Structure formats: C-alpha cells, structure tokens
Computed example of a mutant assay.
Amino acid sequence: MTPWRWAANLKWLFTELEFEARFDAAAAAGFTGVEFPSPYGHTAAALRKRLCDAGLTQVLINTPMGEPGTPTRSGLACVPGLRSEFRAGVERGLEYATGLGCGLLHVVGGIVPAGVSRDRAFARYVANIAWAAERARGTGIRIVLEAQNKRDCPGFVLESQEQAAAVAEAAGDEEVGLLLDFYHLQIDEGDLVNTYRRVQDRVRHLQLADSPGRHEPGTGEIGWHAVLRAVADSGYRGWIGCEYAPVGETAAGLGWMRRVEEVTV
C-alpha cells in the first residue's frame, strides 16, 4: 500500500484544455486533488462547484502576486512598504481557501527589491509571516512557505529549505509549515534525500518536477526511487503536487505514476 496522494497542478497540467475543463480531465486521469496558484479570477463559489462536480479536493492556493514583470511578480511578503497590500492579500487568500475547503495557503515570499538590503527584506518577510500565522490561527488553514530556486527566480528572499523551515518554526507551531518542491531543491541545493530528512518534520506539502527541464519524473536527473523512498520512510501522508510541464499531452505522460508505485511504506 503506497502513501501517495497526487494533486494535479492545473496551471501546469492539462493545458491543452481550457481551465474550466481541467477539473474533469484531472478526475478522469485518476487525480483526487488539485492545486493552482491563483483562483482569484473566478468566484470561490464557481470553483467550489467545479471541484464538487468532479469529486476533487482543493489542496493548495497561493496568496495574490503581482503581474509578470512587476517587482511583486513572485510575492509581496518581503517587500518593505507594502504591509497593507500584503495583509489584504493574506485576507483574500484565507477567504478563498475557506470557500474552497482548501487546507493550505502558500504565502509567497517575493524577490528582494532593487536598492533594498537582503537583511531588511528578510526582516520584513519574517514579520509578515508572523502576522499571517496569527491571522490564520483558528481558521483550520495552514500557512506554508516555499524556497524557490535562484535560476528561475533570481533574488528570491528565501535562500534554502532550512532557512524556510526556521522561519516556519519561529512563526508558529501548527499554523506554519514548509512547502518543499524537489525541483527547486535540486537546482539550488541538491542532496535531496538528506535535505528532505533534515526538514521533514516541518514539511506540510510536497511538489515535484524533474530537473533540468521541469518535466514529468523520469525525464531528467533526479533519482525518484530514492527520493520517494525517503518520503515514504518519513511517514509523510500529505499531498504531492504535480507541478511540471508535460513533454506531450498530460494524460499520455502519467505512466511515471505507475512506475513509482513500487515505492511502498
């Protein structure tokens, strides 16, 4: 019996279909959960209906981010001078998470702005996460933090998985945890198994894609048998988000899931 609960990331998977059709496609492919970063272009009620009709659980959403090319394109949490905008985004994220029955809200860290020291940006980030943790307390929604790689996201405020885990620990106990993405980890730090083991007690959500191409597992350099063996051995029972760009049509490339089912508890 395997522990895997796969969630289709609907920003990345089934993109051959319109967004509204991806829910049914994910369910037809065998997924029971979905995640996507930005639900804010739709009403929570409309999204909840699509989830219910398809028999899916909403696993994860992100806090609002700025438009591509703007200083807040990767989040607001570390940007000095935007405290009110950050707090409004967390409130909106919690509102949507509640409406969707979603248990995890990813508070996106952001890029250190030009002309701002990393220390100042990091201090703002820590303070904002502490506020978000307090605001989430009692809602049943957990805040998660993610370290993103500096090749795809230069200047991102979090520099390592262990730094993210330390912020989560400082901010709260059950309210804040770690979103660990093996793709980002492979690019920035490597040593996936040992790094995962060092922070596993803080991990509340996992995501995967192979490296370097960010395609499905088995298309790159990551040794997934060893990685998922370590995850199984750790007792992790959360969701694993499939956040990758399929090489071809999404459903045709899902054979990797069957191949990793040999990794058992």
Rank of each mutant, 00 (worst) to 15 (best):
R137H: 15
L104R: 03
L47C: 08
W224P: 02
V193S: 13
H205G: 00
A25S: 05
E216A: 09
D201V: 07
G55P: 05
L206P: 01
E159F: 07
V79G: 01
G115E: 11
A166W: 11
T15N: 09
F86E: 07
M257H: 03
Y244L: 06
A114K: 13
R151N: 10
L10Y: 02
D233R: 15
L51A: 02
V116R: 06
T219K: 09
G155R: 08
Y196G: 06
V144N: 02
F14Y: 00
M1I: 01
R237L: 12
L179F: 15
A26N: 03
T70E: 09
G172I: 09
R83W: 05
A168Q: 10
V231N: 01
G66L: 07
Q207E: 14
V144L: 04
F122I: 01
L105Y: 06
T43I: 01
A54E: 04
L179C: 13
E95A: 15
I187L: 13
P71T: 00
R48S: 11
L51P: 00
T72W: 04
R124I: 14
A245H: 12
K150W: 12
S160E: 10
L17T: 01
A7Y: 05
V199P: 00
T70G: 02
V203S: 10
R151A: 14
R258A: 13
G177F: 03
Y236R: 11
E159S: 15
V144D: 04
V199M: 07
W131K: 10
Q186G: 07
E146I: 06
N9R: 09
G235T: 07
N194M: 15
